[in-house]
């Protein structure tokens, strides 16, 4: 089963993402910030990481940067959930090693089509 790590400090977004992905048959684990995500990532393997950018403790960009250093996370796609306005966030994310981004607000169908696109 394809497994995805979904990271967002907003519970409603996290639930929405998780619910949508689970409904599409993915195995989803949730984390509410970068620190928690990193912790979970170390004990598991994922096929894709989906992370919010603005989070307490460790933001999405730091998370991506840190994850890329981890064994097994060098090549896996990591997508950032970001807002339209945050142009330089995209740049920073890319520099940190993010694969791409999904622009908020998005609906479940857009989310799924992007994920499918990435996972092939």
């Amino acid at each position: 089963m394809v497994s995805i790590l979904a990271v967002d400090d907003s519970a409603s977004m996290r639930q929405m993402v998780s619910f949508t992905l689970k409904g599409a048959g993915y195995d989803v684990k949730e984390a509410s910030d970068g620190v928690e995500a990193l912790e979970i990532a170390k004990g598991n393997t994922f096929d894709l990481v989906l992370t919010d950018v603005n989070m307490p403790n460790m933001n999405g960009i730091e998370l991506v940067k840190n994850l890329r250093q981890e064994e097994g996370y060098k090549f896996i796609p990591m997508l950032m959930l970001t807002t339209e306005s945050a142009g330089d966030m995209k740049m920073q994310g890319k520099q940190a090693g993010a694969t791409g981004w999904i622009v908020k607000p998005f609906n479940p169908d857009q989310l799924l089509s992007t994920i499918k696109r990435v996972l092939g």
């Binding site: 400090d9 409603s12 977004m13 929405m16 919010d52 603005n54 307490p56 807002t83 607000p105 609906n107």
Partner: peptide, 22 residues
């Protein structure tokens, strides 16, 4: 912290279709 709170509200509101709030 203040920014993050506003940001989350905006993001959620947009996603769940509460456009005036977003």
């Amino acid at each position: 912290t203040i920014f993050r709170a506003a940001h989350s509200i905006k993001g959620g509101a947009g996603t769940f279709g509460f456009m005036p709030i977003s």
